[in-house]
Design a protein around this nucleic acid. Structure first.
Lengths: 193, 193
DNA sequence: GTCTATACCTTGATAGAC
DNA sequence: GTCTATCAAGGTATAGAC
């Protein structure tokens, strides 16, 4: 195993992932990551050239996380509607965190759109969105017509971003549950054609 | 007119408002505001005790902005459906900015949920959301039943947050237009009862 | 590979002259 | 009221010993 997979490097990425989520990228310092890993600040530069590189690694890590989530959805059912409803319920599995810090990719997106730099991270982040969107399109394609599937997928993506941000701003768990149910009902109600 | 309404104070708030929107609160420094206003850094503390106080003033400013927007909607039509559709189209009026920086209250909310401090600003920000939500409820009450009106309002609030964030992450103006139209269609299609 | 020490800059905030 | 000078703290990043 090369440098890229070293244990220390992994620990840095994992700690940064948590901190970027709970505090935001800009508000997370090397000292914060150092405190949580026990690895001294100066040592980071052996594994990463810049803070930006850590961000890139974190976004890559979130990509693999969502790949895993979608794989799990695929494994749990063959029915596209059931799969979509399982995915819609994903935020409920992280309920406490979602209320506190919002969506891990949505809030990072909000942060990065306001920044001139981080071009690679921004591109990688849209890859995460595209991954989810493509998977949704696949499912919707088996429910409705091909041209509607793309729109449905964007709608669902936006719907989930929407209720996540509202739930986190209002700190309203009940709303998170109601909105999840509502989105699932929307899936159920879709006509098969 | 007292200190609160002084010309310099207003210029600081206006510049901060723009910068907090385009760069984010945490990424905006006193130097940035100083550069845009021409007012020296050290002078800010005559008008505001802390950076947090500037944030409070900015959020208050956005509150009055949205009050104005809603008043305009009320003036343009008496029909609740028409009013809602006008409001839904608001982001299109700031199309370029929305694509670049997202929603002025949504992205600020995303930033502030990750912060322990800024308690007053966070409260004031939910007041902005509540203002919009209450207005929506009023309109929906004239369309459907009272118990459904509250849910519809939350749905619409989430819907708009959702398509705004997706449009800004993807930098997709066409999607912003399609999603706006879709939300307006949803209003039209609502049964009156 | 690991760690310490530190350079250099920018931050929010203060003190005090005018 | 306005401005300059400056503070202490914290930021990213680097140099170099071990």
């Amino acid at each position: 195993m090369g440098t890229k997979g070293s244990a220390n490097r992994q620990r840095i990425v994992q700690a940064a992932d948590r901190l970027f989520y709970s505090r935001g990228y800009n508000q997370t310092s090397f000292s914060d990551i150092s405190d949580e890993t026990g690895i001294p600040r100066g040592n980071f530069y052996y594994y990463f050239k810049t803070k930006d590189d850590i961000l890139d690694a974190v976004v890559a890590s979130r990509l693999t996380f969502f790949k895993q989530v979608l794989d799990d959805c695929n494994c749990q059912s063959d029915d596209p509607k059931t799969r979509l409803k399982i995915f819609i319920a994903t935020p409920l599995g992280q309920e406490e965190q979602v209320i506190k810090y919002g969506c891990p990719i949505g809030t990072l997106g909000s942060e990065l759109v306001k920044d001139q730099d981080h071009l690679i991270a921004k591109e990688k982040l849209t890859v995460v969105f595209d991954l989810i969107k493509s998977w949704m399109v696949e499912q919707f394609m088996r429910i409705s017509s091909a041209d509607k599937a793309a729109d449905y997928a964007m709608d669902l993506l936006a719907k989930m971003q929407g209720f996540t941000i509202i739930a986190s701003v209002y700190k309203d768990v009940n709303y998170l549950h109601r909105a999840t149910q509502s989105a699932q009902d929307w899936i159920d109600q879709l006509a098969v054609n």
